[in-house]
Design a protein around this nucleic acid. Structure first.
Lengths: 195, 195
DNA sequence: CATGTTAACTAACATTTGTTAGTTTTGAAA
DNA sequence: TTTCAAAACTAACAAATGTTAGTTAACATG
C-alpha cells in the first residue's frame, strides 16, 4: 500500500535472483526467462534495468571481488603478526562462503563465462589478491611462526578447503556457524603452525 | 596405414574429448558440435556411438565414481589403523585430482546437470562414499588418534581442500607431484592429528 | 566379387536462446 | 486532470542447439 520500502532497486533484485539461479543451475543453463520469472516480470522487461545477461554475471563477480579486496587492504595495513593476519583472512573466507548468499558460488565457479576484457580484469584482480596473501604467508615463514614446505600449495589448499561451505551450508542451516568456523580454522591453523 | 592401433574405441575418444571441453567451458556451454569438431567428425556422427549428450556426462561421472568406490572398498577392508586409512584416502584424492585428466573436474562440478534418475543415483553413491569415510574418521576419534570437533566438517574441509588441484595442476606441470602431495597431506594430517 | 555392417556424411527439424522494436500501462509531479 | 518518464507488456527475429532421417563411403567377411 504505502511505498515505505523501496529499499532494493529492481536492478539489485535482478542481480540477486540471477545469482541464486546461477548457483543452482550454472550460468549457461540459466535463461533470461528463468531470471525474469523469478523477478516476476517478462524477459524483455529485464532490459529496462540491465544491458544483458553477461553484465549480470560481471556485476556479481566484481562486487564480491571488491569486497575481498577492500578487506584485504585493511588486514594488510594492520599491525598484527603474520599468523594473526592469516587467521583473520581465513575467517573472512569462512564468513563469506558460509553466509554471503549465492555470490560466493557464482564468483568462484562461474567467472570463466566472462568474456574479455572482463575475464582478464577479473583474473588480474584475483592474482593480486593471492599475491598479497602469499606475501603474508611468506612473512610467517620468515619469522618462524609458519611451517609449510610450499607457500603457494598451502595457500590454495587453505582457500579451497573452505569452498565446500558455499555448496553445503545454505542447505544445512541447523549447524552452528561458530562451531563450523572453529573446526575449520582449528584444522587449518593447526596444519600450518609450528608445533 | 596399418591399423595396428585401434586401441581406444571411438566412444572412448568422444568421452575424453567431451570431458576436456566440459572442464573448460562447462557442460551446458559445450555443444555437440564442439565435441564433434574435437573428435574430427560431424555432430550427427556422434550418435553412431553414443545415445545423447547427457549419456556422455553420465558415463564420465559414474566411471570416476566407480573408481573411488572400489578403492574405498580395498581400504575399508584393510587392517590398517584409522589414521593410516585416512592418509591413504587423502593420497587417493590428491592423485586423482592431480592426474586423472579432466574426469575429476567434470564429476565434481558438472554432476548437477544429470537428470533423474541418474542424478539421484549419483548422489546416493556419493553419500555412501562419504559415510564410509566418516566412519573411519570416527574410528580415529574413538581410538584417540584423531582430534577434530566435528567429523563431518573435517571431512568436507579435507576433501574440498584437494579440489583446487583439478583446476590448477594441469596448467602447472612443472611442479613436482611428490612435493605437492607432501605439502597437502602434511598440512591436513597435522591439522587432525593429536599433537 | 558380392554382401552386410559400421560409421561417416548432408539436410533438416523443432526448440530454445538472447535480444530488439514498438506499444501500453503506471504513477508521481505539475 | 494533464503530462511525462520509467518500466511493464506483446511480438518477433536471427542464431544456436540437440537430435533425427536418409544416404553414401569404408571395409572386413563370405
Amino acid at each position: 500500500m504505502s511505498k515505505t520500502k523501496s529499499k532494493k532497486s529492481k536492478k539489485q533484485i535482478i542481480l540477486e535472483e540471477a545469482a541464486t539461479l546461477f548457483r543452482e543451475k550454472g550460468y549457461s543453463a540459466t535463461t533470461m526467462r528463468d531470471i525474469a520469472s523469478k523477478v516476476g516480470v517478462e524477459a524483455a522487461s529485464l532490459y529496462n534495468h540491465i544491458t544483458g545477461k553477461e553484465q549480470i554475471l560481471s556485476k556479481i563477480c566484481f562486487s564480491l571481488a571488491d569486497t575481498y579486496t577492500s578487506k584485504m587492504d585493511v588486514i594488510v595495513n594492520s599491525n598484527e603478526s603474520a599468523i594473526a593476519k592469516i587467521k583473520e583472512l581465513l575467517l573472512l573466507h569462512v564468513e563469506i562462503n558460509a553466509m554471503s548468499s549465492p555470490l560466493a558460488s557464482v564468483m568462484n565457479d562461474e567467472w570463466r563465462h566472462l568474456t574479455e576484457p572482463e575475464r582478464g580484469e577479473f583474473l588480474e584482480k584475483r592474482r593480486t589478491y593471492e599475491n598479497h596473501f602469499l606475501a603474508i604467508i611468506n612473512e610467517g615463514i620468515a619469522d618462524g611462526s609458519v611451517v609449510v614446505s610450499d607457500a603457494k600449495v598451502a595457500l590454495y589448499t587453505m582457500l579451497s578447503s573452505i569452498r565446500w561451505l558455499q555448496h553445503w551450508y545454505h542447505s544445512n542451516r541447523d549447524m552452528n556457524v561458530e562451531s563450523v568456523k572453529e573446526t575449520i580454522i582449528g584444522l587449518l591453523m593447526n596444519g600450518i603452525k609450528k608445533s
